[in-house]
Design a protein around this nucleic acid. Structure first.
Lengths: 155, 155
DNA sequence: AATCGATAGTTACGATTGCAACTAATAGGC
DNA sequence: GCCTATTAGTTGCAATCGTAACTATCGATT
C-alpha cells in the first residue's frame, strides 16, 4: 500500500529507469547484432562521433553518464578495433584526446542510420505530443544536471 | 560531426539513459547508506511496498523493468532479511505470491520518506514546468510500453 | 492420460561491473 | 623550488549481472 502520500508511480528515478531501460534494450540488440558492440562501447563511439572535435575520456564520461572505468575499457576496446585513436595533449600530459578513425566514423555513420530508424519507430509508438513533452522535460533535467555540477554516473 | 541529420543529443535512448542515471545515482547512495540495499533490492521492495496486495516475481520484474534473475536474487535477499515472505499459489504451484512482512513495510515506509524528500529536491532542481512536461512524456512512454507488450529488461 | 509447448522461477558460469588503490602529471600554496 | 592536494586515466579484485540451461508445473492437443 502507498505509505503516507508516497506514490512510487510518480517517483522520478523509478519512472525514468523504466522508460530508459525499455527504449535502450531494443536498440542495444541492434548494434550488438551488427558489430558486437557493448553498451559502453556504443555510447563512447556515439559521443565521439557526434562531437565536432576530439574529446577526453572524462568528457566522454560526463557526456554519456558513464563511470570512468567503463569509459576506459570502452576506449581500449575501440582502439583495438582501430575505430579510435588517442593523442597526447601537449600542455597537459595527463590528458588524452580521443578521435574516431575513418573506420570508426564509417561505423558510426552506419549506426546512426539504425538509430534514426529506431527513433522513428519510437516516435510512432510514443506519439508526437508525448515525444515533444518528453523532450521538454529532458531539457529541464539536463539543465539541472549542469546546474548540479559535473556528475559522472555512480561516482 | 553529426553524420547526415542524426543528432545524438536528440536520440531518445541516449537522453533517457543520461537522465535516469543522474537521478538514480544519488538516491541509490541514500538507501545504500541506510540499509545496504542494492538497486534491485530497493526496486523489488518498492514494487511490493507500493502494491495493494501480493505480487509474483514476474509482476515485479514487469513493473520495475528488471531481468527475472535480478528479481529472483533480490527476492532471496529480502527474504533473508525477513522483509518479505513467499506463499504458494493454491491453484498454480509455479507461482509465488510475494508480500512484505511488517519489518519490510516499516523499512519501506522509512525509505519512502527519503524518496519524498529526494523528489522534492529534484522538483526544485528541475522546476515545476519541466517536471510536468517530463511526467506527460513518461506517461506516453509507459503507454507505449504496454502497447508493445510485456517487456522485461534485456530479455 | 500421454505428449508437447509454454511459463515461473532458480542456478551455474563466464562476462561485465564498480570500488579502491594505483601511476603519472598538474596546480596551488607557501 | 618544494610540499600537498587534485585530476586523468588504468587496473586488481570482489561483487554483480545476464545468458543459457535447468527443474517444476501447467495447459492444450490428441
Amino acid at each position: 500500500m502507498a505509505a503516507d502520500g508516497f506514490e512510487l508511480n510518480a517517483f522520478l528515478p523509478y519512472r525514468l529507469n523504466r522508460a530508459a531501460e525499455f527504449v535502450a534494450v531494443r536498440f542495444a540488440a541492434e548494434y550488438k547484432a551488427r558489430y558486437q558492440l557493448t553498451r559502453p562501447e556504443w555510447r563512447t563511439l556515439a559521443a565521439l562521433g557526434s562531437s565536432t572535435g576530439a574529446m577526453t575520456a572524462t568528457e566522454v564520461g560526463a557526456h554519456s553518464a558513464m563511470h570512468k572505468t567503463k569509459v576506459s575499457r570502452a576506449v581500449a576496446a575501440l582502439e583495438d578495433r582501430r575505430w579510435l585513436k588517442r593523442s597526447e595533449d601537449e600542455a597537459d600530459r595527463r590528458l588524452e584526446h580521443l578521435e574516431l578513425t575513418k573506420a570508426g566514423r564509417l561505423a558510426y555513420g552506419d549506426l546512426t542510420d539504425l538509430a534514426s530508424a529506431y527513433q522513428k519507430q519510437l516516435e510512432d509508438l510514443i506519439g508526437a505530443e508525448g515525444l515533444q513533452a518528453l523532450s521538454v522535460g529532458l531539457d529541464a533535467v539536463e539543465r539541472a544536471i549542469d546546474k548540479a555540477g559535473k556528475h559522472v554516473a555512480r561516482p
